[in-house]
Amino acid sequence: MSVQPVVPEAPSARSPYFSEEHEMLRAQVRRFVETEVKPHGEKWEKDGFVPRDVLRRMGELGFFGIRYPAEYGGSEMDELATVVLSEELGRSTFGGFAITALVHTDMASVHIANAGTPAQKAAHMEDIVAGRKICAVAVTEPDAGSDVKGIRTTARRDGDHFVLNGAKMFITNGVHADLYCVAAKTAPDARPSQSVTMFLVEKGTPGFTVSRALDKHGWRCSDTAELSFQDCRVPAENILGQEGRGFYAIMSNFQNERLTIGAMAMGESQAALDLTLDYVTTRKAFGAPLFDKQAIRQRLAMLSSKVEAGRQLVYHAGWLAAQKVDCVREVSMVKAYCGELVNEVMYSCLQFHGGMGYMRESAIERMTRDARVQAIGGGATEVMLEEVAKRLAR
C-alpha cells in the first residue's frame, strides 16, 4: 500500500509571533514571487543581475520600506517583518534574486537610515524606499571578511574631504548599485575598534571604480564585484554617523544581517523540501513512487523536523529583536544553524532527485549551489559558533 504524504499548511499559520499585518505582507510577497520572479528568474541567472525595473516594482509595492519611517514612504514595521520578507524571498528558489533585494533593504541602506544626517536622508531615503536608488555595503576585503578590524582601506583627511585608497571584495550589488556604504580606516594608529569610519560614496565619484564583476559558484543573478578606490575624494559631509565609530555600526547591523540570512535560508529549505516531496511522489522506481521507500520518506521527515526547528529559532530571535532584547547569542545560533542546515537540506534533496538533480535545468541543482555561501557570508559558521560559545557561561 502506498503511503500518501500530507502537504502541511503554511508554517506561519501556526505561529504566534506574527500579526495580521505580517501575514498580509507574507501573502503579498508570495504573490509577487509567484507572478514576477519565478517566470523570469532563469533569464536573470544567465544575465548575471536582476533588472532594475523589477527592483523598482518591489519599491512600488512597499517591500523596500517595511522598516523605514512613513515620511520616506515606509511602513514602520518591526524585525519580524524582515523575517517574513526574507523567508518569502528565499522561497523563490532564486537565491541571487533574494540576496540582491535583502542587501539593499537590510544590509546596506540601513547605514543611511540609522546613521545618516537629515540632509543625507532627505537626499536619498525616498529613492531607496522606492527602488530608484539601489545600495551596496562595502566592508569585506580580500584579507578582511568577518574580521572587520582587519580592513586596510584608508581614508585620509584633506581639508573638507577624505581621500580613500584601497579595495573591496565580494560586494553584492557592487556593479549596479547607486550608493555604497564604505568602511575605511580614518585613524590607523587608534584602537582597531575606533579606527573605522563609514562613508557614503555615490556611483561616478572620481577615483572610485568597479574593478571587475566576479564569477560565482552560486547566486548567479546577484551581481558581485571587486571595487577599487584610488585617491577617491569624498566630502567630509558624506560620513555616515560619527568618525571612528564605523566598527560599532557594522557590528550592530550584523545582527540584522544574520537574522535576514537565517530567515532566507529557512525559506529556501522549505522550498527545496516542497520540490522534493513533489518529485518523490511522482517519480517511480522499482514499480512504486520513491516516497514509498521508507529510507527516503524518513529522511525527508527528519529534514522537515530540522527545518521546523530552524524556522522557530529564527522566529524567536526575530521576536526578541523586535522586543529590543539583547539577542546576539540567539542570532548567532540562527546564522550558524540555518547556514549549515540549508546545505544539509539541499544535499539530500538533490540526492533524492537522482541524476536529474545534477542537471543545470533542475531547480534543486541551482538551489544547492546558491546555498553553499550561506555558511560563509555574513559571518562564517565557525565565527558564529565562537560568538555562541562566549555566551554559554552567562
Score class of each variant (00 low, 15 high):
Glu330Gly: 02
Gly159Ser: 06
Asp127Gly: 07
Glu34Lys: 10
Glu340Gly: 12
Ala375Phe: 05
Gly267Lys: 02
Lys133Thr: 06
Ala190Phe: 12
Val84Leu: 00
Ala371Gly: 13
Gly377Gln: 15
Leu313Asn: 07
Lys38Cys: 14
Asp53His: 14
Thr186Phe: 05
Leu214Met: 05
Gly379Phe: 01
Leu200Pro: 01
Asp106Ile: 06
Asn256Tyr: 08
Phe286Met: 03
Pro118Tyr: 13
Ala363Asn: 08
Ser332Tyr: 01
Val54Gly: 05
Ala380Gly: 08
Gly357Ser: 04
Met333Ser: 04
Glu36Arg: 11
Lys203Ile: 03
Ala113Ser: 11
Gly90Pro: 11
Val3Phe: 09
Phe254Gly: 01
Met356Ser: 11
Met359Ala: 15
Ile99Met: 05
Glu36Ile: 00
His111Asn: 06
Leu61Ile: 09
Thr282Leu: 13
Cys327Thr: 01
Gly145Lys: 12
Leu227Ala: 00
Thr154His: 08
Ala27His: 07
Gly310Pro: 03
Tyr347Gln: 05
Lys133Asn: 06
Phe208Met: 15
Phe162Pro: 10
Met356Cys: 01
Met266Arg: 08
Gln230Asp: 14
Gly73Glu: 00
Ala119Ile: 04
Asp189Ala: 15
Val163Trp: 01
Tyr358Pro: 02
Val50Trp: 07
Gly59Arg: 01
Thr276Ser: 13
Glu88Ser: 05
Ala213Tyr: 07
Ile134Phe: 02
Lys185Gly: 05
Ala380Asp: 12
Arg283Pro: 02
Arg57Asp: 11
Gly73Ser: 09
Glu126Arg: 15
Gly95Asp: 03
His161Tyr: 12
Gly131Trp: 06
Thr172Arg: 07
Val137Cys: 14
Ser252Ile: 01
Met302Asn: 06
Phe352Gln: 04
Leu277Met: 15
Leu214Ser: 04
Ala122Ser: 13
Thr93Gln: 08
Ser269Ala: 13
Phe170Ala: 01
Gln242Pro: 07
Lys390His: 03
Thr153Trp: 11
Ala10Arg: 09
Lys390Phe: 00
Arg311Ala: 03
Val182Arg: 08
Leu277Asn: 13
Ala265Ser: 15
Tyr315Asn: 00
Gly174Tyr: 00
Val7Thr: 13
Asp278Gln: 12
Arg360Asn: 09
Thr368Ala: 01
Glu76Phe: 12
Val129Lys: 00
Glu36Val: 02
Ala113Thr: 02
Ala190Val: 14
Gln298Met: 10
Asp292Cys: 03
Val210His: 14
Thr140Glu: 11
Gly218Cys: 10
Leu164Arg: 04
Gly116Leu: 07
Phe63Trp: 04
Tyr358Lys: 15
Val210Leu: 12
Ile261Glu: 11
Leu179Cys: 00
His111Glu: 02
Glu202Tyr: 04
Leu89Trp: 00
Asn114Cys: 03
Ser19Glu: 05
Arg372Met: 12
Val148Lys: 08
Arg391Ile: 09
Asp274Arg: 12
Lys284Gly: 00
Met107Ala: 09
